[in-house]
């Protein structure tokens, strides 16, 4: 925990902070609708509804008043981050299970908002990718890869009826990250891989614009002082440095740092997920260590791991280390020689 002064005012209540975070996600969502079709709106709606349902149910079970906790908006932020991290056009029960793991298991089993050691949205994502690896690699294809993106009704139909009336194959493809990994392992030439339509100028086609919009929204959060610069900066620097080093070692095997920064969940993770005030490190030095290592782990897991993206696992792993990092990076207290553990001894 950081030291005082804590500023409490109407202007930075939990509700307002959460609303501002949601607002900062809007540019990314608009870009996603533009390039991948309105499927994301369906999954946002579903995750939001499921999350409020679970939250209300568990609050009732625990005998906690509904209104103050439901209206603080934190569960909506969790739901939206989860929806943005999951593939769109997946069957509805995938979202239901993801939200269950995020809200019921990761948040309330540990005691509710502020008590959870792990980022709820990332727990939901991790549970799903472990359980349904196939469904989690079928992402909506961007315009230019697919013939067309589904309209809103087709999106609803895909989510609720599954492959009943329309084949989802027409609208889905592997992500750029996934394509890169599988084809490099098949021994294909890097230039050939990058020439495929799923790749854009930086990351995946369309995805790079979505990532840029998350960057814009995230910078707004920083300029509004809702988050400090430490975590996003260290997270992205960790990714860039690790990916850059690997790229220098063997450009045929490892994609460029730019690709790593603008594909998958890197930007969303840097500004919106790793910065979760409950589960992230809270001292300035601690934030740099926490996020830098999370960025490093992201690239390592992406490169050498079996799962398509590494952001979730990297953030969860660093969540475990947060109490330790915080304990050793306490700033010097006035009148004491050292900060952290040494100062206390």
């Amino acid at each position: 925990m950081n030291g005082s002064p804590y500023i409490l005012s109407e202007n930075n209540s939990v509700t307002l902070v959460m609303l501002k975070v949601l607002a900062a996600l809007i540019p990314g969502v608009i870009a996603q609708v533009w390039f991948f079709g309105p499927g994301i709106l369906v999954s946002l709606l579903l995750c939001g509804a499921f999350a409020i349902g679970f939250e209300a149910f568990i609050l009732l079970m625990r005998g906690i008043p509904l209104k103050p906790f439901l209206s603080d908006g934190s569960v909506l932020v969790t739901a939206c981050l989860l929806a943005l991290a999951l593939p769109t056009l997946a069957p509805w029960w995938l979202y239901l299970l993801g939200v269950f793991f995020a809200v019921a298991v990761a948040k309330h089993l540990y005691g509710g908002l502020g008590q959870n050691p792990f980022n709820p949205a990332m727990v939901g994502y991790a549970a799903l990718i472990i359980s349904f690896p196939l469904a989690m690699t079928q992402w909506a294809a961007p315009l230019g890869v697919a013939q067309a993106t589904p309209n809103l009704w087709e999106a609803f139909d895909l989510v609720f009826a599954g492959a009943g009336s329309i084949s989802p194959d027409a609208y889905t493809s592997a992500t750029a990250l996934d394509t890169w990994k599988t084809q490099v392992r098949l021994g294909k030439d890097a230039a050939d891989i990058l020439g495929q339509p799923i790749f854009g100028w930086a990351g995946g086609r369309g995805q790079e614009i979505v990532a840029s919009m998350y960057l814009v929204g995230g910078l707004l959060l920083v300029s509004n002082r809702l988050i400090t610069w430490h975590i996003p900066f260290a997270f992205l620097a960790g990714i860039a440095a690790t990916a850059g080093l690997l790229h220098l070692l063997d450009p045929a095997l490892h994609a460029s740092p730019l690709f790593h920064l603008f594909s998958g969940g890197a930007m969303l993770g840097a500004f919106f997920i790793a910065t979760d005030p409950v589960t992230a490190a809270s001292t300035p030095r601690g934030k740099l260590i926490y996020a830098g290592l999370a960025g490093f782990l992201t690239v390592i897991i992406r490169t050498f791991g079996g799962y398509p993206d590494g952001v979730a696992f990297a953030v969860l792993l660093m969540n475990v280390a947060v109490p330790f990092i915080d304990a050793y990076t306490q700033p010097r207290v006035f009148g004491h020689k050292h900060g952290g553990k040494r100062g206390k001894a």
């Binding site: 299970l97 298991v105 089993l109 549970a127 472990i130 359980s131 349904f132 690896p133």
Partner: peptide
Amino acid sequence: YHGLLIAILPPGAFIGLGLLIA
């Protein structure tokens, strides 16, 4: 049933045991 792989894998053991203790 399609199966929920996480219950069979090690995380399922920890979550399940935690629920039983609770």
